[in-house]
Amino acid sequence: MRTLSIIGPGRVGRSLGKLFHQLEVFQITSVMSRSLESAVSSSAFIGAGEPVISIEQLSAADVFMLAVPDDEIEHQVSRLRQYALVETDCIVFHCSGSKSSSILAPLRECGAHVASVHPVRSFADPALVVSDFHGTMCGIEGDQLALQTLSAAFGAIGARVFELSPEHKLRYHAASVFASNYLVTLIDVAQQCYVAAGLDLDLAARLAQPLASKTLENCFRLGTTAALTGPIKRGDFETVQRQENDLLSLDRSIAELYKSFVPLTTEIAKRSGAE
């Protein structure tokens, strides 16, 4: 069984580490975090791996997984190279959706095969991720040998792997941000507006939840053009303008967000009318 060292056991690192350990895909050797407390708790969650707090403490491994924030990848690459931990024919991959595997190029010069693997899902609750990871789409790109090994490894934990174009990863990841992160922002803004209209937060959540859930269901069952309802779809632009003016008195940022959606939503409505 190949060995795996995890650098950055946040929610992604913990989840994948536990899956790899549970399903005996990799033998976890080291779990590196910024603090010993985090490293110990992450190792305990995964069920394997020696908790460490610095690169020089990492054990040698066949595979290194960098599950750190995007801005830290380059630094960790430099440290791995500095301490000569990457041996010929080992595999190094990161989990960033926005950065390509080219950021790992200095390690390729050391003989490593590099790649990136981006699971397209929310990792808000690692325990839940572990329980329902099967079927998760994972975008992958990089060196051929690394792709072969990692495609098999992720397939073994239930992932459905697809290839990405490295030159378009920023655009690809922006799509994921719209589909996930900004949905959270929109729901939060909707709840703020309900509360500002005099409702309590519990009722605001109970109103937003079925509305958002059914709309998402319709988007993927019927398509976005058929799923669109509301004032823009009806052509009620006087209502749209009055709502924008009212929101300006509440919060300029929320009003500007509302306004920014008008032209894009109008285009969807036009497509719908043309069908």
Score class of each variant (00 low, 15 high):
Val130Thr: 07
His118Gly: 03
Gly135Arg: 02
Arg121Asp: 08
His118Met: 03
Gln144Tyr: 03
Pro106Cys: 04
Val130Leu: 05
Val120Pro: 07
Gly111Ser: 12
Gly135Pro: 15
His118Pro: 10
Pro106Met: 00
Ala127Asp: 15
Leu128Cys: 07
Leu107Gln: 11
Ser122Lys: 03
Cys138Val: 04
Gly139Leu: 02
Val130Arg: 03
Gly135Ser: 05
Gly135Glu: 06
Cys138Ser: 12
Phe133Tyr: 13
Cys138Met: 05
Gly139Met: 01
Ala124Asp: 15
Val130Ser: 08
His118Glu: 01
Met137Ser: 07
Gly135Phe: 09
Ala124Gln: 11
Gly139Asn: 02
Val129Gly: 12
His113Lys: 09
Asp125Thr: 09
Glu109Thr: 09
Gly139Ile: 00
Met137Ala: 13
Gly111Asp: 10
Cys138Glu: 06
Glu141Val: 00
Ala112Glu: 12
Gly111Asn: 10
Glu109Tyr: 13
Ala115Thr: 01
Phe123Val: 01
Pro106Ala: 04
Val129Cys: 14
Glu109Gln: 15
Gly135Cys: 03
Glu141Thr: 00
Val117Leu: 13
Pro119Arg: 00
Gly135Leu: 02
Ala127Asn: 15
Pro126Thr: 03
Gly111Trp: 11
Phe133His: 08
Pro106Tyr: 07
Cys110Asp: 15
Asp143Ser: 05
Val114Ser: 02
Arg108Leu: 10
Arg108His: 14
Gly139Arg: 01
Leu107Phe: 13
Val129Ile: 00
His134Met: 06
Asp125Arg: 15
Val117Thr: 07
Pro126Ala: 05
Val117Glu: 01
Ala112Asp: 15
Asp143Gln: 02
Ser122Met: 04
Val114Tyr: 07
Ser131Gln: 14
Thr136Tyr: 10
Pro119Lys: 00
Ala115Lys: 05
Pro119Leu: 00
Leu107Ile: 02
Val129Ser: 15
Ser122Asp: 08
Cys110Leu: 14
His118Ala: 02
Gln144Gly: 10
Ala115His: 05
Glu109Ser: 07
Phe133Trp: 05
Ala127Arg: 12
Leu107Gly: 14
Val129Met: 08
Asp132Pro: 08
Val120Lys: 01
Leu145Arg: 09
Met137Pro: 15
Pro126Lys: 06
His134Pro: 06
Ala124Met: 06
Val114Leu: 06
Ala115Asp: 07
Pro106Phe: 06
Cys138Asn: 07
Cys110Val: 02
Ser122Pro: 13
Ala112Ser: 13
Val117Gly: 06
Arg108Ile: 01
Pro126Phe: 07
His134Val: 02
Ser116Thr: 04
His134Asp: 10
Leu107Met: 10
Pro119Thr: 00
Ser116Tyr: 05
Ala105Lys: 12
Phe133Ala: 05
His118Lys: 03
Ile140Arg: 04
Thr136Cys: 15
Glu109Arg: 14
Val114Glu: 06
Leu145Ile: 01
Ala127Cys: 12
Thr136Ser: 12
Ser116Pro: 11
Val114Cys: 15
Leu145Ser: 06
Leu145Cys: 03
Thr136His: 15
Ser131Asn: 11
Gln144Ile: 01
Glu109Asn: 15
Thr136Ile: 01
Ser122Val: 00
Glu109Cys: 10
Leu128Val: 04
Asp132Trp: 10
Arg121Ala: 04
Ala115Trp: 08
